[in-house]
């Protein structure tokens, strides 16, 4: 089944509306109570125009994007992200991915380069390694 995957394959993009609800829910679900992720007034006092998404939520969304594509039997082995432009409420995060390497036994370790852009610029750049198992592809 890993023949189904080739270096250069692009994952369908995923557009995620960056709502205030997503930012707050993601922060709380990740146990991150920093006020810049839920209190717009305090965020502005600290010089930010509004609340913004925390890095754990971005990480979670990248993981979701990959597993949505490769299916529930696939297993994340590594997620490495670097953040750039913040995700403020009202924006849209557009995740894209491309397979950049197939490794391991029967080439079942797939390395995907992920980017996520919003209206300001590049929110996230990342590399994900996901293991797909026999019969486990979506």
């Amino acid at each position: 089944m890993t023949e189904a995957y080739r270096v250069g394959d692009e994952l369908p993009p995923l557009e995620i509306p960056v709502t205030r609800t997503l930012i707050v829910a993601g922060a709380i679900a990740s146990r991150d109570y920093q006020d810049v992720h839920h209190d717009a007034e305090l965020a502005r006092e600290k010089g930010s125009p509004d609340i913004f998404m925390n890095i754990l939520t971005t990480n979670g969304l990248v993981g979701r994007y990959i597993i949505d594509h490769f299916g529930p039997a696939a297993a994340l082995r590594k997620v490495a992200i670097r953040l750039g432009a913040p995700n403020y409420p009202g924006d849209v995060l557009r995740l894209t991915g491309q397979i950049v390497a197939l490794e391991g036994e029967s080439r079942a370790l797939i390395e995907v380069a992920v980017t996520g852009d919003n209206r300001i610029g590049r929110h996230v750049t990342g590399k994900v390694i996901v293991a797909v198992t026999e019969g486990g592809d979506a």
Partner: peptide, 26 residues
């Protein structure tokens, strides 16, 4: 980010500042 110089107080144990990104640019 905490541009105002927020103190390090979150309870996450290892670090504060896992939050954010640059406020102003990409």
């Amino acid at each position: 980010m905490k541009p105002g110089g927020q103190g390090v107080r979150d309870g996450q144990g290892v670090r504060d500042g896992q939050d954010g990104q640059g406020v102003r640019d990409g």
